[in-house]
Design a protein around this nucleic acid. Sequence first.
DNA 1: CGCCTTATTAAGCGCTTGATCAATCCTGTT
DNA 2: AACAGGATTGATCAAGCGCTTAATAAGGCG
Lengths: 214, 214
Amino acid sequence: MDGPTDKTASESDCGTIRRRLPPAERRQQIVDEAVRFFAEVGLDGKTRELAKRLGVTQSLLFNYFATKDDLIEAVYEKVYIGRLSPDWPERLTDRNVPLRDRLMAFYSEYSALIFERDWMRIFMFSGLAGASLNHRYLKHLGDVILRPLLSETEALARTDVRPTMEDVWNLHGGIVYIGIRQHIYRMPAPESPDDEIARAIDKYLQFFGIERDD
Amino acid sequence: MDGPTDKTASESDCGTIRRRLPPAERRQQIVDEAVRFFAEVGLDGKTRELAKRLGVTQSLLFNYFATKDDLIEAVYEKVYIGRLSPDWPERLTDRNVPLRDRLMAFYSEYSALIFERDWMRIFMFSGLAGASLNHRYLKHLGDVILRPLLSETEALARTDVRPTMEDVWNLHGGIVYIGIRQHIYRMPAPESPDDEIARAIDKYLQFFGIERDD
DNA sequence: CGCCTTATTAAGCGCTTGATCAATCCTGTT
DNA sequence: AACAGGATTGATCAAGCGCTTAATAAGGCG
């Protein structure tokens, strides 16, 4: 009554309704959609709704993940991984390049990576939930990015006021807050985040009397 | 077997097990505990667990709030209310006082109000949930605090670089991020937040060439 | 004290949840 | 074409959910 029901299920238009994927591919498909899903509705999103978005049965999810927590863990890892590039520490400490340029390069790349709705929201959800990956990430960020950044600032500071770790966190927080406003609170984004980042960096450097070409 | 079970239920120690409160008092008690509860576990916290914390039946909650959403709305209002003092706008624009002092006074008071776990977390939960109160609060903050603050900065700025709304948001975000680190991510707090606030403000003012006594 | 109002409870309804598992039916191989 | 393997499904479970309601008992008042 309702249209040509092509029972063969392979569906002539194999674009969307395809079934029976190779396990690795399906698993990845599930995680990908789960990232979007949980980022949107929170970690209490229901497995049945996620399955519906995937066009798949809810029970299938449990063939790939023993429990919902396992799936969430996979979401965490998928979204946290690669968010801190391993070559940033050395680039941030390369004193052949002016500190301002290093900071601009870093925060320009970093913001492009993190000012993304899925990441921002899952990071916040996992932070609120007290996920260990969240703590480890922040500790890593502090150890591997911000603390070296403090050393670099100290090495160039020309004022009597000495930079502290809190100053670096303030720089970092002011920048990250752009993404929070945009993706957590859904406020309008600044036209050019890089410009705002540049101003935040200049404000920071100027406070310690560091010139543009130091 | 188990101790003197004082069946009269008024409980000699009337500290905790008391029953039959006047409705207004019980309602307030419920909201107070709900704030702590939802701040801790999130808005998907279960009414049965909240009731257990109150030492009360779950069904009692629904005598005071028709639905769980109503209770959450009461939590929102309880926690949002009074968070933006109405006399701040005029104090922030009182040009008889140096801008630095005005900023310090404001952010010192404001941070004392908002650097509190229950508020921080409920604000974040409600923001992620897209609650309208959250949007209204942020719009109000922008209109009534930050925009005037931009005007005050403009009036005193001595540099060729003109302050923008984004600069004010950056100042604000850097400060608020202290509370986010502490209460959302549960990182250790700075010893004296007021000192960090002062540095953030000085950094901001100095960027626009505003002196301490302007 | 005994009554009467009503704050509170106990029981449970209908539905949804995460999770299970035997039964399907694609799909590559022969 | 027939088969075998395994990805996928549909039916289902027990637990837990928000919420309802009739019964219970606390406590101020005469």
